[in-house]
Amino acid sequence: MRVYVPQLTKLAKPGQFVHVRCSSGLDPLLRRPISLHGIDYGKGTISLLYQVVGTGTRLLAEMAPGDEIDVMGPLGKGFTVPDGIKKALVVGGGIGVAPLFPLIHSLKHYGIQQTVLLGARSADFIIGREQLELLGVKVKIATDDGSLGYKGFVTRLAEDEISGGTPDYFFACGPNPMLKGLISLTKGFGLSGQVSLEEYMGCGVGACLACVCKSKAAAGREPDDSAEGFEYKKVCVDGPVFEASEVILDD
């Protein structure tokens, strides 16, 4: 879905999201967080790529061109491209590729080499392969059922890439088990990177504390319960993009 919102687009950065009202009634009541999948600064539009999983996303899918939509944003902290990186590994699981597109564009813009790994249940859930190849980006695919590319988890492909020794940084978005696997893998190789997380949200602006994730307590700050060694951070304002070394993902 493409949305014309020049004021919002002007401020938008890769990795940020919008909080979308899917219904003008009371069902669903809450807004739905959806990542910026495309940012067209010239046209003043953003595009959203979403998977229909429930009422909210179904209502979005039922909208017609020209309809008005209520979006709040851009929200959250997006990806940052650290100075000095030369070759990035970009990993997207399922619909998690959505927020990676604007990042991939900006990596290309900065002349940083990249390999994109896409993982999903099956070939049908692999999104954006053609567009990426058109961009001239190297893409490798893994599916759980082997219907496309490597049969198995995308983290296995990541392991091959990293042990091949080429990437000096990584970016990832996808389901928590994938991110968890990737974080422990990259830690083993001493490879730093950023991950984009998902959590159920209320306000989207840091006011309700619904969307928290565990973070290793920031250095120099007194953790409120040092025995547990973590503090909760808000995915909506402190993230959704976090340093991989910082987050603790539960099973």
Binding site: L30, Y200, C208, A210, C211, V212, E228, E231
Partner: peptide, 11 residues
């Protein structure tokens, strides 16, 4: 206070 584990909100 740290608060509770997630999910913390449900519709």
């Amino acid at each position: 206070r740290k608060g509770n584990p997630t999910p913390r909100i449900a519709e």
